[in-house]
């Protein structure tokens, strides 16, 4: 397998001097956020999010965990600017979030690699409007392919890549603009357990090296605890924050660490009660490889 294992730190020269440092490095503030979708065929609407308050400081890794329908992906879309219709406020460094920005990268749940572009060209797509010169673009793409260990697969098309490799291309594309904030929507949901844990470790290293703020949405409690400085637990109907907890464990974390397991159990009890805490995943129905993930329980 072409697992390259290593990754290399990128020399973070300021590629985008025109971007205000206050907005890239400012605190993400979410105040009293609500989101309603028009309900199908009926009057009224469906409240997907209600009264969300959250502030995330630069460089922090925040995991948002919750079951289906708790609005965690909706929350991520609102932060990304893909959806502008909401109540309340979202601001970064005091500036309200309106529309998408190259400074807020997003890695989609379904990857969204364009099948007619090579790995390289897929990553370069994110740089179309970066304002970089052709040579700088080429260099940035090459560096980020290297960052995710795929430099030898620059010319490969998505259908020639494995699931894990495709996922890395998507992460490289999310990072290539050097965003201050990277949003990850269940990025490892469709991967096998082994690839998944490798990529989690890799993501953690990238996060530490690049100093990017990351928000990870997941239904996998273990993943949330493994990666987050903080874990935000959400509940459905309407989507609210149920609990927030700091993870005081040193990094890199060990999944078999008793304290790790204790925190995990604690969070799982929020959903299932103590007797079913070993269920591990919050979305048991229809998720591929939900059972495979049990392998990790130490």
């Amino acid at each position: 397998m072409p697992w390259a294992g290593g990754f290399s730190a990128i020399d973070r020269k300021p590629l985008k001097p025109e971007v205000d440092i206050m907005t890239t490095k400012g605190i993400l503030e979410i105040r009293n956020l609500g989101k309603a979708f028009p309900a199908n065929g009926r009057k009224g609407s469906l409240q997907a999010l209600d009264g969300i308050n959250l502030s995330i400081r630069p460089g922090e890794f925040v995991s948002i965990v919750g079951g289906s329908g708790c609005g965690k992906s909706t929350l991520l879309r609102l932060i990304s600017g893909l959806d502008d219709e909401f109540q309340g406020e979202i601001s970064i460094g005091g500036a309200p979030v309106r529309g998408t920005s190259l400074d807020r990268g997003i890695v989609f749940q379904d990857l969204r690699l364009l099948p007619w572009l090579t790995a390289e060209a897929n990553i370069a797509l994110a740089l179309e409007n970066s304002g970089l010169s052709k040579a700088d673009k080429r260099q940035a793409v090459a560096e980020h392919l290297k960052l995710v260990g795929l430099e030898k697969f620059a010319q490969a098309y998505p259908h020639q890549l494995s699931g894990g490799m495709s996922q890395r291309v998507a992460i490289a594309r999310g990072l290539v603009n050097r965003p201050g904030l990277l949003l990850l929507d269940e990025p490892f949901g469709a991967l096998d357990a082994l690839t998944r844990s490798r990529l989690q470790a890799e993501l953690e290293r990238i996060w530490r090296e690049e100093g990017i703020t990351m928000i990870l949405v997941t239904h996998d409690v273990e993943e949330a605890v493994f990666l987050g400085d903080r874990v935000i637990v959400m509940e459905p109907g309407p989507g609210r924050i149920r609990r927030e907890l700091r993870i005081p464990l040193p990094r890199p974390r060990r999944r078999s660490d008793p304290r790790f397991l204790e925190i995990k159990e604690d969070i799982l009890r929020e959903f299932t009660g103590p007797e079913t805490a070993e269920a591990e995943s919050l979305e048991p129905a229809g998720r591929p490889l939900a059972e495979a993930r049990l392998d990790w329980a130490a």
Partner: peptide
């Protein structure tokens, strides 16, 4: 829709969107 959203996330202008996403997708 997901591909159009991708174009929005990377702030492609209408011409880039046509050339890079819509035409290849419709090809």
């Amino acid at each position: 829709k997901s591909q159009l959203e991708l174009a929005r996330a990377y702030r492609l202008d209408p011409w880039q969107r046509l050339r890079k996403v819509i035409l290849p997708s419709a090809l």
